[in-house]
Design a protein around this nucleic acid. Structure first.
Lengths: 257, 257
DNA sequence: TGGGGAATGATCGAAAACGATCATTTTTGT
DNA sequence: ACAAAAATGATCGTTTTCGATCATTCCCCA
C-alpha cells in the first residue's frame, strides 16, 4: 500500500517522464499542496536519484540510477510498466495496424514499437503521437477531437466518429481500474468510456494494459466486460488477485516480469 | 553560412537534446560568454519553439530532433514572423473560434493567442496543438488525419472530412508561395491544397500569413485566388512587390512591422 | 579605414525561489 | 481515545535569477 505522499511522488515522476519538466506551481495546483511540500517531495526524489531539481521546478533524467532504498519502490512501477510494454510489443507483428489509447502505459508501448517496420499507428494521445514522430517514415494517424487536460488526449463525439472509420488489428487499451470480482474494466469518466468502446468496436483484438495499482481502486464508468477483451497484460503485483479469480477470467490475464 | 551566434544557438539546442537540461552557468562557461548573452540566446530559442526556459536554465522539449542547421533557420526571420503574428492576433477578438493551419507563422500566432480569454482553437498542426496545451483551461480541438513529416501536420481525406464539421470565425492560413501577377495563393502539394480549401470553406474570414520570402518563389498547387481571401498579412520586405500590384489586389495586403 | 549597426558585456533594482524554522494538522500505534 | 510521530503549511530573511538599460566591443561594408 502506498502512502499518500508516496503516491504523489510517484505521480510526479510519472508526470516528469511525459513532460520532461514541471514547475513548482504546476505541482502545487495539481496536487493542491503547498510549495514547501513540493520542495520536500522534489528534494527526496532528487536524493533518490529520480529527477534533477532546478530553480522553480525539476527535470527528468534520461537514465535512472537504481538505488535499493525507497527509490526502488518508486521506480518499481516504471519498471513494471516497461515490462508490460515489452510483452505487449511482442504481441504486435510486422504489418499490424495498432490503435493506441492515451495513457502512460500505452506511451511505453509506443516507445517500444517506434522504429519497428511496416506498422501503422493511430492514437488519441498527444504525447503518444509526438513520441511516434520521433522516427521518420512511420505511418501515423492522429485521432481528432476535443483536447482534454487530464490525460492529454483527444476525445468526445468527434473523436468517436473519427475512430469508427478505421478497422485495426490491435488495440492497446488503457484501464483506469479493473474490478475482477464483477468482471469489469472501468475508466474515470463516461466520455472516456464512450471513446474506449468505439475503439473496441473497430479492433480485431483488444489488449488491455494495467499495472497492479489498477486492481485495488475503482472508477466511475464501465468500458467493457473482462470476458469481452482479448487479453489483459499486467505485472506480477497482481498475482494473488488473479489467482482468486474464476477460471474463466483467469486465462485472460498475462503477467509480465 | 552560420553566424557565430547562430552556431552557438544550434550548439545549445544540441546540448539540450543530450542532457535534457542545462543551467545558465554551464552555458556561460562552455561558450565563454556573459549571462546576458545566454539569456538572449535562450530567449530567442524559446521564441522559436526549440526549448523552454526555466529559472536558471532551459529544458528540452519533447519533439523531433532538428538538425543544427534546421534549428538555426527556424530562429531566422523570427522577427518578421513575430510581427506578422502580432498583427493577426489583433484581428482576433474574444469569443472567436480560430482555425490554425499548420506552419511556423501560424505557430507564432498561436503563441500570441494562448491565454487570451474565451477563444476556441482548432488546428491540424502537431506543434501548434502542443503549444496551445501549455496553458490550462483552453478549448482546443485537434484535427485528425494522417501525419506528415514535412510540416508536422495532419492531413488527407480524413482531415478534410473532419474539418468540414466545423464552422469557424477566423482561419489563419499558411501560404507556401504567393503569385501576385497571377493573383494566386499556392502550396507545395495537392494534398495540402485540398485540406486548405476545406479550411477556407468552413471559415467566415480567411487571414493568410506569408513572410516576404513567399513572394519570390513558386509552388505546385493552387489553393485560392487572392481576391477570394479576406486579407494577407506580410512583412515590410514585400512592399515593392505589393506596390506594383493592381489596385484591386493591393487592398488585400496588410504589412506588419 | 572609418562609420554605423549589431552583438555583447556590465550594472542595477525588482521579482522569484530558496532553505530553515516553527506552528499546525494528520496519521499511527497502543 | 490518547500520545507520539510524521506530514504539511506558513513565515522569515537570504540568495539567486530576472529583465531592462546603457556602455562597449565587434564586424561588415562602403
Amino acid at each position: 500500500m502506498l502512502t499518500q505522499a508516496e503516491d504523489r511522488q510517484a505521480k510526479i515522476v510519472e508526470l516528469l517522464r511525459e513532460r520532461n519538466f514541471v514547475d513548482i506551481r504546476t505541482l502545487t495546483e495539481r496536487f493542491d499542496i503547498s510549495v514547501a511540500t513540493v520542495r520536500r517531495d522534489l528534494g527526496e526524489l532528487e536524493e533518490a536519484g529520480l529527477l534533477r531539481r532546478t530553480h522553480g521546478g525539476a527535470v527528468n533524467l534520461n537514465q535512472v540510477a537504481l538505488d535499493a532504498t525507497n527509490a526502488a519502490r518508486l521506480v518499481w512501477k516504471q519498471t513494471e510498466k516497461a515490462a508490460i510494454a515489452a510483452v505487449v510489443a511482442g504481441m504486435v507483428v510486422d504489418g499490424d495496424t495498432v490503435l493506441l489509447d492515451a495513457g502512460t502505459t500505452a506511451l511505453e508501448v509506443a516507445k517500444k514499437l517506434t522504429g519497428r517496420s511496416r506498422l501503422t499507428f493511430i492514437s488519441n494521445g498527444l504525447d503518444i503521437v509526438a513520441e511516434l514522430t520521433r522516427v521518420d517514415g512511420q505511418s501515423i494517424y492522429s485521432v481528432g477531437g476535443e483536447y482534454t487536460e487530464t490525460n492529454r488526449s483527444f476525445r468526445g463525439p468527434l473523436a468517436e466518429q473519427f475512430i469508427r472509420q478505421f478497422n485495426v488489428d490491435k488495440l492497446i487499451l488503457n484501464a483506469a481500474s479493473i474490478d475482477v470480482d464483477r468482471g469489469l474494466i472501468c475508466t474515470v469518466s463516461p466520455v472516456n468510456a464512450s471513446v474506449a468502446r468505439a475503439m473496441i468496436e473497430v479492433s480485431r483484438r483488444v489488449i488491455v494494459v494495467a499495472d497492479h495499482s489498477k486492481f485495488t481502486k475503482s472508477s466511475l464508468s464501465v468500458v467493457a466486460k473482462i470476458e469481452d477483451v482479448g487479453v489483459i497484460v499486467t505485472d506480477s503485483g497482481t498475482k494473488s488477485i488473479i489467482d482468486a479469480a474464476p477460471e474463466k477470467l483467469r486465462k485472460k490475464f498475462v503477467i509480465a516480469n
